[in-house]
Design a protein around this nucleic acid. Structure first.
Length: 335
DNA sequence: GAGGGTCAAGTCCGT
DNA sequence: ACGGACTTGACCCTC
């Protein structure tokens, strides 16, 4: 378990070496199902084995890179792309082959040990296809399978043993809402249940829906999503945030922070938080405002987001990844 | 090496 | 009906 007293600011999935440039050798590889289907069985296996081996080496290097940062920057969301096609019916067998299993066990174990030794807080965020509350039973079944893919990696890394020693976050999604999450929860493994977090989204299922799940799983407050939905800059002292914190049962919570793209905000003012009603009156849509910025360009928003760091770690979602989150952190934390 | 077409999957918004 | 947005543009083929 990571140090509960350490305040953190994290970033997601990819490491940039400089503005606009992915770090060479420090990002994962993938392939496509279409391409795999053109390959013979053993060639496809070798292809996936090579990618898995590469990605495990890369993941270890990523965590090592994060571990070398100051303690307050040691938080990282791992890409879901580590093992391509894991949940595709035609290729699942690849990942249960004995040689592959050996690779996965040793590779992920090394990552977990490195993270624990250096107090790096890790998480996953399954992609948009993981919709546990869909009204389509087939989609729910696939989503549970997709979630358990992440739980497998979590287990290999040595997490999922205690409540929220690792965060695996999804939105409510689908038409069934919180009730659908509660029902899907019953089909998840214990590691998956320990790690599941639910995040409020911009549209259908927002903070109020999330709060129906306070006793089901830990809740992630996405402060930008909540702003898109309500126009409100929610405060850490808000009673609803207190309930969100309670859902973590003593573990240090995580919130998500992103901002709208600067080019969509006509004032470009960096010292005033955008006014949602005014932006909409000016013709901007929620869909436009939803898109994430490259950098954290608005200092007023940054101060608002940072006010949560006393209570929760902040996962940053921006196009420039570590470049953006480190600059944001440096506005407030001198190291 | 560069450029363009393509990519497993869900859901919603806006045009 | 379709493109774009979301957790991350990357991969693969052709020239």
């Amino acid at each position: 378990m990571f140090n509960q007293n350490q305040h953190r600011i994290g970033f997601a999935c990819k490491i940039q070496s400089q503005l606009g440039t992915a770090h060479k050798d420090l990002n994962t590889k993938s392939t496509t199902i279409t391409h795999l289907k053109t390959l013979e069985r053993t060639v496809a296996y070798n292809k996936l084995y090579g990618i898995a081996k590469n990605n495990l080496t890369t993941l270890l290097a990523q965590v090592k890179w994060v571990a070398q940062q100051p303690p307050h920057l040691r938080m990282f969301r791992i890409s879901s792309d580590i093992l391509p096609a894991y949940t595709h019916d035609d290729y699942t067998w690849v990942y249960f082959d004995p040689e592959m299993l050996k690779l996965l066990e040793s590779g992920f174990a090394a990552v977990g040990e490195l993270a624990r030794a250096n107090d790096v807080r890790l998480s996953f965020h399954p992609a948009q296809y993981c919709v546990l509350a869909s009204d389509n039973p087939g989609v729910v079944e696939n989503s549970i399978y997709e979630f358990e893919y992440h739980a497998d990696m979590i287990r290999y890394m040595g997490y999922g043993r205690t409540f929220q020693d690792f965060k695996c976050n999804v939105h409510v999604g689908g038409k069934r809402g919180p009730d659908g999450i509660k029902e899907a929860m019953r089909s998840l493994s214990s590691e998956a249940r320990n790690c599941l977090t639910i995040e409020n989204a911009e549209f259908t299922w927002g903070l109020d829906a999330s709060l129906e799940l306070v006793d089901t799983c830990a809740l992630v407050l996405d402060i930008h999503h909540h702003w898109i939905m309500s126009g409100e800059y929610i405060k850490p002292t808000d009673a609803r945030f207190k309930r969100v914190m309670d859902s973590w049962r003593g573990v240090r919570p995580v919130i998500h922070y992103s901002v709208s793209r600067e080019e969509h905000v006509p004032t470009h003012s960096t010292s005033v938080k955008p006014d949602l009603a005014a932006l909409k009156a000016g013709g901007l849509t929620s869909a436009k405002l939803r898109a994430h910025s490259d950098m954290y360009w608005n200092q007023a928003c940054n101060a608002w987001a940072y006010s949560f760091n006393e209570f929760a770690d902040i996962m940053c979602e921006s196009k420039e990844k570590n470049i953006a989150s480190f600059k944001f952190a440096n506005e407030f934390i001198k190291f």
